[in-house]
Nucleic acid binder design. Structure first.
Length: 479
RNA sequence: GCCGACGUAGCUCAGGUAGUUAGAGCAUCUCACUCAUAAAGAGAAGGUCCCAAGUGCAACUCUUGGCGUCGGCACCA
């Protein structure tokens, strides 16, 4: 991490738009947003997210619903776009892989790799299932038949595709992966290195148009379209206007610190394949990629519609507000490992941390200050948050939030022990000093909430400055 | 099968270059207080630190072997 860099770039992965947004992606968005908001306190930041809209599955899903594929992806992209408001995100751009900018960037990227001699044609030979209309991998095989169409004979089909020479970059990739802080948490690096050393092959980056055409056209060959992966990765730089508007790209990708977030199953895609592509195109690799765990249902089992344990982020925000969901995702969900999400846990955390904790503390302090102080005491210009900020530098958001709640606990204890509410009745001056101190401490807490709970950060600071107690509880206790 | 992570109080998790009574938060119970959202504070209770063997004066902490959960071992993203 180069502290001299004045600009900072962060992006999420882009989800496939064949379903409603789920809570796991909300986690990735919120985590990224917190890092973006934290970095904005001292740097110029560009925070990007978007949607991946090409590919066979999307095309098939649209056909199944009897919709025009463009209408289909527009419909779903809208749902993901709406998360900005639902989760109170601060992203600077929302990039769709089907956008003109991305198509253009992907084609230019292709040309660069081609000019480098890294794209070649090869015959792909594989078992093809007519029922699925796609190639079948070993995993899908059941007794020599496709698991979904066990009565249909599989055909050995040959198709000529373009391939990307990933293996050419083996040495450079290993050097890249040897670098400090390229992957968080650190131990996931082993997985990436292992993949480069043992399993890595060149990968196909195109599909024959005869099979399906829902993809980005390949420059100079109208019989094939780009395979989803290739076109999707490009979003990370097309969102910055690459290759046309060089200003943002240079500022954030070339000269800034770059961070990507992704799920733990994405290591080889983001830390190896995409990095190899950047090397080929002669562009800087990503400085750091942070991998989060998955959100599970009760008992660590996967969420699924059939089990009825799916959590919809929109429902929670409707009832509790964005900050409550953010609080839970950031504090009760591990920053790096799998964690369960149940409504029971959510309610418990909401009541203890937000209603009884932060909300009640704000009430008790502001009631006193409104009653006994003429105005808000003078707030120091700056606070020393070195310890707190250090957690963000390590992407350990849970620890950062814990730090804030420790401060809340200390302040509650302070009030209990020093009893300013009693002191002020016997020695008014002394009581006022105590109350002023409390208000200043509360303001520091409000400041710390800036990256994690932006709405509460603003409300609380406003109440303190106006020396007013909340008219309604900040977080109403729910029973 | 191979590689990796994880397995610690009812729940979610910290922790430890091995060294006296194993930590936190939530939940539970008791007491006390009233500034506050019947909130906050004090206290109690709660654990063979997955199992087994080994090495050590000493292991929850190291080694080996099991078991369990999860991810990867690419062309579904």
């Amino acid at each position: 991490m180069n502290p001299d860099k004045k600009s900072f770039y962060i992006t999420t992965t882009i989800p496939y738009v064949n379903a409603d947004p789920h809570i796991g992606f909300a986690l990735e968005l919120v985590q990224s947003d917190v890092i973006a908001r934290y970095q904005r306190l001292s740097k110029d930041v560009f925070f990007s997210t978007g949607t991946d809209e090409y590919g066979q599955k999307i095309w098939e899903a649209s056909q199944k619903e009897g919709k025009n594929v463009q209408e289909y992806v527009d419909y779903y992209a809208e749902k993901f776009l709406n998360l900005k408001e639902t989760l109170n995100l601060s992203n600077d751009n929302f990039i769709r892989t089907t956008s003109k900018e991305n198509i253009k960037a992907a084609q230019e990227f292709w040309r660069l790799c081609e000019a480098k001699g890294d794209i070649y044609k090869k015959i792909y030979r594989g078992l093809y299932c007519v029922g699925c209309e796609r190639f079948i991998t070993e995993k899908d095989l059941m007794n020599g038949f496709c698991s979904l169409h066990p009565t249909q004979k599989l055909e050995m089909v040959e198709e000529e595709n373009y391939f990307f020479k990933l293996t050419k970059y083996k040495k450079e990739l290993l050097e890249y992966l040897a670098g400090d802080k390229v992957i968080f948490p650190e131990w996931r690096r082993i997985e990436a290195i292992d993949f480069v050393q043992n399993g890595m092959e060149d990968f196909s980056i195109s599909r024959n148009k005869k099979r399906f055409s829902w993809g980005i056209p390949i420059p100079g060959d109208d019989t094939q379209v780009m395979y989803v992966w290739f076109g999707a990765f490009i979003n990370y730089i097309s969102t910055l206007g690459w290759p046309d508007s060089k200003g943002k790209f240079e500022k954030f990708w070339q000269d800034g610190k770059t961070v990507q977030t992704a799920g733990k199953d994405m290591v080889k895609f983001q830390s190896v394949m995409w990095q190899g592509m950047l090397m080929s195109a002669g562009l800087p690799t990503t400085d750091t990629i942070v991998y989060h765990g998955f959100i599970t249902g009760e008992g660590g089992i996967k969420m699924s519609k059939s089990l009825g344990n799916v959590i919809n982020p929109n429902d929670i925000v409707k009832e509790y507000g964005p900050d409550a969901l953010r609080y839970f995702l950031l504090r009760e969900i591990s920053s790096f490992e799998d964690s369960p999400f149940t409504m029971e846990r959510f309610k418990e955390a909401y009541n203890s941390g937000l209603a009884n904790g932060l909300g009640n503390l704000a009430s008790r302090i502001l009631t006193l200050s409104e009653k006994y102080l003429d105005k808000c005491p003078e707030i120091p210009e700056k606070s020393d948050f070195a310890e707190y900020f250090n957690f963000f530098e390590k992407f350990d958001i849970k620890q950062a939030v814990d730090h804030v709640w420790n401060k809340i606990g200390e302040l509650d204890k302070f009030i209990q022990e020093r009893e300013p509410f009693k002191v002020v009745k016997t020695d008014e001056e002394k009581g006022k000093v105590l109350i002023s101190d409390m208000v200043i401490c509360l303001y520091e807490i409000a400041r710390m909430l800036n990256p994690i709970m932006p709405e509460t950060n603003i409300i609380l600071k406003k109440l303190i400055k106006e020396n007013k107690k909340p008219e309604k509880p900040l977080f109403l206790r729910k029973d």
